[in-house]
Design a protein around this nucleic acid. Sequence first.
DNA 1: GCTCTTTTTTATCATTTGTAAAAAGCAGGC
DNA 2: GCCTGCTTTTTACAAATGATAAAAAAGAGC
Lengths: 187, 187
Amino acid sequence: MELSQILDNIYPMPEASKLRLLQLARRVHYPKGHLLLRAGKIETSLYFISKGIVRAYAPVNGQDLTFWFGKEGQTVVSMRSYVEHKAGYENIETLEDCELFELNTIELGRLFHKDIEIANWGRIFAERELIQTEERLISQQFHSATERYRALMEDHPDLLQRVQLGYIASYLGITQVSLSRIRAEFK
Amino acid sequence: MELSQILDNIYPMPEASKLRLLQLARRVHYPKGHLLLRAGKIETSLYFISKGIVRAYAPVNGQDLTFWFGKEGQTVVSMRSYVEHKAGYENIETLEDCELFELNTIELGRLFHKDIEIANWGRIFAERELIQTEERLISQQFHSATERYRALMEDHPDLLQRVQLGYIASYLGITQVSLSRIRAEFK
DNA sequence: GCTCTTTTTTATCATTTGTAAAAAGCAGGC
DNA sequence: GCCTGCTTTTTACAAATGATAAAAAAGAGC
């Protein structure tokens, strides 16, 4: 997926503004298993995923807890670093060989104050992410593990093919053993 | 709490931009039990809470599930309506007599495209909400009910005084019976 | 195709949480 | 004071989920 299309899918901007963003980006490539962002660091890179899949995980009580997957068209960023310039709580690693577009968040921040179209693009990006996160929260809080698994199967069947079940279980907030039990019911 | 201060706490703007926002707002007052926003409706009002406390709840499987509380300084908005102009999934009701500042989201949207300071204010508002929601999600997913209750007690002790336990239990993603059990342990 | 490693499933038992119903506590109206 | 309705706590039992260990299956490298 090309960067121009990824940007348009968030919010279509006039060509001049889009060009400014495109010029900030550089295409990078990382193999499976590469750490894109590190917990405890103030990160200044933001990535758009052109090809591949990544996961975000936070170390909690000595365990790595997966709370997000990103694939083609999605944006990889430590919100804590990006918004508050503080150390983030998440590691983000590639789960496949990935092709990404990398942007510097400081330079992006400058554009937000220079170009109103880009500022609105940034606003709409955050708003969309917010809705998705809020829906995840509600689903997490009020649906059973089985219901959440079925919803994931419907909404993102490809994830189950591309990501190992231990990570999926963590994402669903259950143990791998529980997930395995749930899967066994449907066969 | 005055509106000017609420806006500044999100992101301080030059006076001219702030005035534009202030002019959009009107002060309103509602008694305890008033429904500010309705699920299934495309809402065009957004509120800043000057005084009082509100809760957001979604009807899921015939139950009302509380997933958010707002108090002084916070913003009441149906993200679905505000961002996507679609029917929202939440009801939001006052739990106390409330003093609020009401804004029309359509007019606010116009300002986003006219005034870059306001656009950035809107961006930062969404980004902050996003971080909070993401942290709630992680806490919800990876901490036990007891840990979540203790965290709530530390972070928002006033909530426990101002909100009935049935709503708190729902907010924590557990039943009222479970919450009662947890509370009994600490005595 | 075989070996070694990683991932997934199965089995058992302990713990947590849910459901339902009853009891206790509290506040307002008469 | 004493109903009445609402909220909170308690109890008993059922269901879901977790922890641990071990077996089975799947994949990677040679």
